[in-house]
Amino acid sequence: MKLSSKVANLFCAARDRREFNEALKQQYASLYRLAYAWCHHPSVAQDLVQETMLKALEKREDLSSLQHLKAWLAKIMRNQFLDDMRFKKRWEWVEESEIDAHHCHECSESELIKKQRHEMLYRAVARLPYDQREAIVLADLQGFSYQEIADITATPIGTVMSRISRGRQKLKELLQKQDLHTKVVAFRGH
């Protein structure tokens, strides 16, 4: 190989590494939200994101294009999360009562109402069976297509559709129950 080509190749490799690291950094917030929506525990979510970043650095040669980075990272994180659930049983650490709505520090009335709504939703999502929670979060929070979700979860597209459909139905029921419970508590408060 000519020296000029060799230098050009080295240049490309360095640029690729820089772009890859920058792109990884840009995905941090999105990955954290996804991790949180799966596990509902800030510290476990942070660990999961860091482990995903490590795996991504290890396997960066497997990524064909940065355009596919978001789905590729989601797939890595999903596998990591399932491994953790199987081998470390970390999900057992998370009690429903522990779900920490660390999303809002303001305390105006409207913010309080919003916070309560969010907390109801977190609790309901946390109570969904894992496969339904995973599919719904990938679709609604991350905006992945059914085909992308099927690829990320290594599941037939029909199963993805079925999980989303059943999950939303269950979510609706859970939210209705919680809403009813909130109203009863409010009534007793008066």
């Binding site: 990884l24 999303h103 969010h118 929070l141």
Partner: peptide
Amino acid sequence: SSIRQAYGDIAVPEPDFSLPAA
């Protein structure tokens, strides 16, 4: 929309790594 908004409002902690560039 509720799911997008509820999880979008989560406070994302500062990353405790910096992924240094070469």
